[in-house]
Simulated scan of single mutants.
Amino acid sequence: MRLGAALDLGSAQATRPQVDRAARLLEAAEENGLTSAWLGESYHVRPEVFHLPAVLVVLAHLAGRTDLPLGTAVLLARAYEPRRLAYEAALLDQLCSGRLTLGLALGNADLAERVGGGTDGRRPAEWLAALVASLRETWSAAPGTEGPAPVMPPPARPGGPPILLGGRTSAGAVRAATIGDGYYAATNYGDDLLAARAAEYRDARGAAPGEVAVTRLCLVDEDAGRARETAAEYFAPVLDYYTSRRAWMGLDGPEAPRLPLVGSPADVVAALRRYAASGVTSVQLRVAPYGTPPEVARRTLTLVGSAVLPELDKAGGDPPPARSDTERRALG
């Protein structure tokens, strides 16, 4: 299993200071063994604790400030015109020297009215499948040949970055297995929901390799009780964002948040091993939600590097699912 850093950047504070703090956080993440950096996006109409719009713009800035592979977790496809997305993602792949993984989800239907994207009147699932196919065809096209016109500059890697698809439903997991390079689960998907979707993804994928990635809030302390107390203090704004919208989801609908990666190093190792056993291959750690002091986030990263990753690296348990060369380049 690989661990990455999921960045919390929102519209409730000035953007540049947040990005500067994020760049420093990524230095600590890399020093402590995390292997990728991820950023989500939203298009808010009022200040919110996360996310920012236009995730590719922010990642383009960070591309010059970290050597970590970069990922969108996730970009909201309905906010984009497909051809322009092909150009912008290819350019970002160039800026980060072929280190981009493109996580995609549909996003809310109102994005078409608010920011000019949409599904061209087609069924959303049909439109998303066509978008993925168009991106790959465009990124693979050669100048002067028949078929889709290429983008210039092309992606740094032939065929473009790996594409992970999100979605809370069974159909979303199956879609990720059939047209994507992997499945991406959000912070607010409870562990039972995550395990179910990972199983459906693996069943639909069959013998073919594939990624299952997830974002999780994380706070580690030598004392488990102190970790939970600290998380209760500093993670409240983000948890309130989800619970006020009844958006923390279990298999049967909204449920109370549970934070398996909040606790002692042993607690976190046990939770990560459970994820690995359910087929998860990559976990992105949200260690610095809105309002979390930098020293708290850095302490979590230090303990992840010194006490969590060494235990995960020890032999034991089932081997991870096989991955293709493309997938090994994804996510670090």
Rank of each mutant, 00 (worst) to 15 (best):
L194C: 09
M152P: 02
G291Q: 05
V115W: 05
G172K: 05
L62C: 02
Y234D: 02
T145A: 13
H61Y: 15
G98L: 10
R16S: 10
Q94V: 15
P143G: 04
A297I: 01
E327W: 00
L217Q: 12
A177K: 05
G116D: 01
A185E: 11
G107E: 11
G263E: 08
L309M: 09
A199L: 07
T72Q: 12
T169I: 01
Q18E: 04
A105K: 02
T215W: 11
E137T: 07
P237R: 03
D67C: 06
L312D: 03
R299Y: 09
E233T: 14
R114G: 01
R123P: 07
S282N: 10
L131K: 03
I179S: 06
P153Y: 06
L165Y: 10
L25R: 03
K314E: 12
A204E: 10
G40M: 13
L56I: 14
P154D: 00
L331N: 04
R65K: 07
L194S: 01
S42G: 02
D67S: 14
A22E: 00
F235K: 00
T302M: 04
P289I: 06
G33R: 06
V214Q: 09
Y290F: 15
C218P: 08
S97P: 00
G107N: 13
N108W: 08
R329M: 10
A60S: 15
R136G: 12
A208D: 14
V115N: 01
